[in-house]
Nucleic acid binder design. Sequence first.
DNA 1: TCCCTATACATTTTT
DNA 2: TGTATAGGGA
Length: 670
Amino acid sequence: MKLNQAQNQAVTFISGPCLVLAGAGSGKTRVITNKIAYLVRDCDVPARYILAVTFTNKAAREMKERVALTLGKQESRGLKISTFHTLGLNIIKSEVKEIGLKPGFSLFDDKDSMALLKDLTMEKLDGDKEQLFLLQNCISSWKNDLIMPEQLQKKALSAGELEFAQFYLRYQQNLRAYNALDFDDLIMLPTLLLRHKEHVRLKWQKRIRYMLVDEYQDTNTSQYELVRLLVGERARFTVVGDDDQSIYSWRGAKPQNLVLLQKDFPALRVVKLEQNYRSSGRILHCANILIQNNPHVFDKKLYSELGYGEPLKILLAKNEDHEAERVVAELMAHKFMNNTQYKDYAVLYRGNHQSRLFEKVMMSNRIPYKINGGMSFFARAEVKDIMAYLRLLVNQDDDNALLRIINTPTRGIGRATLEKLGNFANELHVSLFEAACHPQLGSVISGKGLTAIENFNRWIVGLADNVMRGDTQAGIREMIKSMQYEEWLYATSTSPKAAEMGMSNISTLFGWITNMLEGDELEPPMTLPEVVNRLILRDMMERGEDKEDTDQVQLMTLHASKGLEFPYVFMVGMEEGLLPHQSSIDEDNIEEERRLAYVGVTRAQRELFFTLTRERRQYGELLNPEPSRFLYELPQDDLVWEDKKPKVSAEQRQQKGQTGIANLRNLLNK
DNA sequence: TCCCTATACATTTTT
DNA sequence: TGTATAGGGA
């Protein structure tokens, strides 16, 4: 595995701050893994002093695997590779006292935090969804900018902002009372801690002699500050990024951090990786021309030494059903002619809702496919229930968890009883569980409700004791059994099949938990509180047999495709209003949409297809979308716009399309 | 407590 | 247009 000159430069420069501008497909993962190996092997930096940070758990896992391949077990021992959020969680865990949290704190996900906000603002906002959404966003941005509620009070704010600042303060106070943190706290708290406490900062700086950051263009202000504090004066670090692939600014990412880096570290060495190893010359040329329509701070021009390749095809469809049929027909014909596999193809779209029709047509043509994204595993009711139980076992003050499951399965603790309990807890300023255990509870709740609550308390305390002390896995199994969850699921589900699905989801979850408790070559064993928090961060180590060897067409959003590559790519819905999306047109944010298109184009290795429709139904309304402006920005010499087909009636076309597909299927299946 | 109907909502969503 | 959810009525 030889490195090219630029890659080699990026790997071997270790004496100071280094920015690697890594164009799409230029081998940045290779640079990062090689650099880690270089540090350990050639520069005698023990692996435990190296920290590499990514954004997704998937990326972290992949990096771990690739480093393990080059370095081996011995040399990579103690190497720290994690996501920003897991890093933050680990810092908080070892500095609980400094931060003022009790051990065993809970993590609130977006839904939990929304539930809390809704509760806090009931009187003033009355559950106004739009306002709540705005508020949640506001708080998140404040946290990303490292602004504490107290600081906001001093600023001159409008009346509306002042009210939001008040909510922010109450929200933080409540989180603390529940001994809980939200996702943004995982970055903000360690950053503020390191900023203000020198001895803690020095301790962590000592532990990190070299730091690497992947997808640097996606960092927000607090994440960048965390990096700065960790690398300190010595500034021994490498960040890898590509401003043209910044597609998460709507989530607080600040691609300007690339420019800031040059200001904050004048000694910064900038290395550009411009040779692309992924795509045909033509695809790359198109990508370059497209992205040239955006302003740039760093100029960069990708080139490829692979062949020039086939022209990009643009398929016109009458409507969205037709679009899906055309893609499937084209895909099957292409597969037949080129003797390829299903997994060589990807269908990329702007919004998740677009997947439905493709799913439908693929299913009816028995094409194996895999949808990435959409309804998450953790959004399933049963999974949320079990997670809530586990959270409660770990932290009894977690009110959201308690509220979710105190009457699931039914225990005769109804709305009225809960309301009384809630009021009681409010008066005492304690969590619901603490209120439920209070000796004076009998003065506000009586009879059946009281007995039910007392039984529940005893049950939870006993379980928590068992699980935290003894055999955790057996304890969890016992819990699910003793509350008769399975029976309840079968009794309440719409069909036995749905209940079966539910139980199988629970086994999947249980399998992950078992894996994490036991650990493996890449991960040390964890305790239950650790497992619960990592699961909320969606950080489960799915590993083992059924990896990527299944032969399925990949369906995903353009966002989800970042970092992946496919021989043949279909970018569908290339229409004004979809890509660029209408709301981005309205907000005059075309540049990010163009980057999104750029990400899509650069996923393709050999061939690229675009599709668009004449008519599209949206919310029951019939639209006649214009072709996406991005199609016109591409070099027209490299495109083949499909001519309009001779006129055929809808029924005829339907039949034709169907029989065409059926014939192909026969050919493929024989 | 459960079931059905009316109603709201429909970009992207690494953690 | 299609789906998730909340709340009313039995």
